[in-house]
Computed example of a mutant assay.
Amino acid sequence: MREILGITNKLCEALQKKDQDIVNACQLIRSTKAQLLDYRLEGFDSLLKDVTTFCDKYEIEVVKMEDEYVDPKNRRKKTNITNRHHYVVNNFNTVLDMQIQDYERRFNEVTTNLLMLMNCLSPCNSFSAFNKQNLLDLAGMYPYDFNIDEKDKLKYELGHYIYNMKDDTPFANLNGVGDLAKRMVETRKHIDYPLVYRLMKLSLVLPVATASVERSFSSMKHVKTDLRNRMGDGYMNDSCICFVERDLFQQVSVEDVMQRFQKMKSRRQQL
């Protein structure tokens, strides 16, 4: 389990970042899958060597891999398999297959392609990742948000959009799609390019619906503990917001909080 968690830890940390680059996340997904597959095919011998070294160091008896496996629940019954077969097939491969299947379910080819297509909206390096055909394919993955006429208009709108964005100084040196969407609203470009802006909003929903939600559920474990398991939904929601967005709340002074509560209603004593 230490080896498996070591392989998957990098991807888990990356998905928890709010400003994670999409291309980097896709590359980490592919490399994590590949390493798990390699470990499944070639990792048991190295694991057995480490276990044997550990057992020799602390004088623990090691079973011989070539001997017949004995079921501890029914020692009299013949198993007709070796210890190596039991530990490789029934334990090692089973655990890794569960991990690999879970990654395939969560990060299938469609999801990975969607993430790669989303990256074409990135404004980094003067919109170097822009690709009109990929963005049209991305719009095709949202049939309920773009009808046939809008998809046809989007093709021409993207041409005007990229031409103007590259020459517009306010859109230089942006760090992500989120910053790009904010700048479009500030400059009222979202009115000139409504279909492109709609595509941006759809793209921004996906990270919020994955990593942000996972972070929120992880935060609930810290807020609603065994000692506070009867917490109401309203209080838990407020506490979770404070915990998840603690970077923002650290900028709020204690004095401002006290004044806020003081003005909510009349109190006998001044806070």
Rank of each mutant, 00 (worst) to 15 (best):
D226L: 08
K18E: 13
F54V: 07
C120K: 06
G140T: 05
N9P: 01
Y163M: 09
R75V: 13
A34Q: 13
P207S: 14
K263E: 03
D38Y: 08
K64A: 12
E3S: 15
Y103R: 02
L206P: 05
A211Y: 07
T53V: 08
L136T: 04
M264N: 00
D145I: 00
V177T: 13
M1D: 13
K10R: 15
V254I: 06
L37T: 11
V208S: 15
F243Y: 14
D256V: 01
E214D: 13
T32Y: 05
R267F: 02
D179N: 10
D247H: 03
K77G: 01
H160N: 11
K132D: 03
A172N: 12
Y161R: 01
L154T: 05
E157D: 06
S212M: 11
A211H: 06
K182W: 00
V51F: 13
F92L: 02
R230K: 15
K132A: 07
D137K: 11
G159W: 00
I191G: 00
F146I: 00
K263F: 00
L41W: 02
L96N: 02
Y144C: 08
F107W: 11
R246I: 04
Q251M: 02
L5K: 15
V223I: 14
K153S: 05
L114S: 12
M65E: 14
I60R: 07
Q101G: 11
D19H: 14
Q20R: 12
L248I: 04
L11K: 03
K155A: 10
T112H: 00
N175Q: 13
L227V: 06
D192E: 12
T53S: 12
S203A: 15
N80H: 13
V70T: 15
D38C: 14
H222R: 13
I148W: 01
H190F: 09
V213G: 05
Q259V: 02
S239F: 05
L206K: 10
L15N: 13
K153A: 11
D168L: 13
Y161A: 12
P143D: 09
Y103P: 00
M116Q: 09
S239Q: 06
L158V: 05
S239K: 05
F107P: 06
D233C: 05
N131W: 01
T94R: 10
L11C: 09
